[in-house]
Design a protein around this nucleic acid. Structure first.
Lengths: 279, 279
DNA sequence: AACGCGCGTTTCATTTAGAGAAACATCACC
DNA sequence: GGTGATGTTTCTCTAAATGAAACGCGCGTT
């Protein structure tokens, strides 16, 4: 279409060279249908993606054949299909990282009696990979697979603080720093200062910066190259937590220790010592 | 490529008209990576899908940009990416059918004290949509999202027995009737007879025909057009179950009743009566 | 060290497979 | 019954994907 595009350069639509445009469009449609909270109609989809009706029709037909979307012939609307559930089940049982992390997370939850999370950096967000609810009466709901912002969560700041300098700069540049609560850090200088502190202490805090009722503590799990491959932490109910500085200090210690041991398991004792200091 | 293909007719590669070949290829690659139990290399993928290396590279680059696959730069291998977890989380919370089914499934499990399942027909398989473990000591593991064969499971047979005649014929035609245990029905005439009985009784059994240690009982949940929109059932541990005909009869009654009530909720009392008989 | 081999990546010309317009078919709502 | 929006099919043209080939690289072998 764009005839003047130099080969090898980025195209006008933002799709970089070496990627397949039509495939990408199809994935966008699938993503749209999954993200929508209700079945979507063809015209609606074509309009939001801004592609031709006819093309949308073909994409949807292909997705349907694959079982990825289900078409309701009555209402002519499209929703997530059975294959997605199958994929979910398959991806979920993929022990991968989680098999290694689980025991540590288990112990952290048992020790602190708070809800524990493990997250990785994915698409400029913190992606919650695992969750264990506390045994206490108040339980933060399970939100595995959910994205959370980097700038105002403990897990996010732990991940952000331990990125290579250029990557961190790029991320900070790209982030929106949306305000969620009065406590949210929304200016880059303040955030940078906070990250420096996280780097020093190897513990990140979230004092109701994202969710007004949560006080979170997280530490990075660092790989052999010194960058965070994940972050582990716990969530406390905010109004109760802030009144108990001794309890917070204790939780910080336990999260920190847990992350250090995980880091040692992943990357060895020398890296762990470099990040968390000597035992 | 195939220049002689008549417009509108099926293409030589089996892809029907109106579907996008390249998009389909991309989805096949994604499916392959998800299904694989280990990270895959580019060459491997290209060979199994039988596409050009260069194309595979482009597809993978696109998938990676989307976060659907994660590339390990060290080993140059591809695995399922974070976006899939995100999709899983999003699809999972989709209350849809399950919100309606859950209470019934809950009650069935409570009444029978056995593990309960709910499945739908998807891609010539029974797709497990929900599961509740029994409160007893022996628990069948959770397998939500898993496909099971139609010809040798109680849920599958319940679904199969209540399909429109032509669809049922087509399905029977297409099925492989693979043998899993000595009890598996592997010839079509026998299977047809079994389905006729299921249709009469509105209860399907699986006497260790798929898993040698399971005895399963299931009934169809029928929609307003008289075809099964799902199936609900329980799994008993086989060697214990067969010794207790009275227990089995009781479970059958309870499963049947649960399915009837669910059918009534979905399709109304008249349909329920037509399938399950008068109360 | 030189060699061969397989793999990943990039480039390039060829041509298919997809895009888009338009015609058609339905349906809903005035 | 007409008007407009939507879903579906057909057709033509060309942009976009394809596949061959070339390149660079790491690895194991001789």
């Amino acid at each position: 279409m764009r005839a003047g595009a130099t080969p090898g350069s980025a195209r006008a639509d933002g799709a970089p060279a070496g990627t397949l445009q039509s495939f990408q469009r199809g994935l966008m449609i699938l993503d749209l249908i999954i993200s929508a909270d209700r079945p979507l109609r063809l015209a609606e989809i074509a309009r939001t993606i801004t592609i031709d009706k006819a093309s949308a029709f073909r994409f949807l037909a292909t997705l349907e054949r694959f079982g990825l979307v289900a078409k309701d012939e009555q209402t002519k609307s499209y929703a997530a299909g059975g294959k997605l559930l199958h994929w979910s089940a398959t991806v979920g049982r993929n022990g991968g990282v989680m098999a290694l992390v689980r025991p540590y997370l288990d112990r952290l939850v048992a020790e602190t009696n708070e809800s524990g999370h493990f997250a990785i950096l994915s698409s400029e967000r913190a992606l919650l990979l695992d969750y264990i609810g506390s045994k206490g009466t108040i339980v933060v709901q399970n939100r595995v697979g959910v994205y959370e912002p980097l700038h105002c969560t403990a897990l996010g700041k732990a991940l952000l603080a331990f990125q290579p300098p250029e990557r961190q700069r790029a991320l900070l540049e790209a982030l929106t720093l949306e305000r969620f609560t009065p406590n949210t850090l929304t200016d880059r200088p303040n955030l940078k200062r906070a990250l420096a502190r996280v780097r020093d202490e190897a513990v990140a805090l979230d004092d109701a910066e994202y969710n007004p009722v949560l006080y979170c503590v997280a530490s990075p799990v660092v790989g052999s190259d010194g960058t965070a491959i994940g972050a582990i932490g716990v969530s406390l109910v905010h109004p109760l937590a802030v009144r108990q500085p001794k309890r917070i200090a204790e939780v910080k210690r336990k999260v920190r220790r847990c992350a250090r041991e995980l880091t040692r398991a992943f990357a060895g004792a020398d890296i762990a010592a470099a990040v968390f200091g000597a035992a």
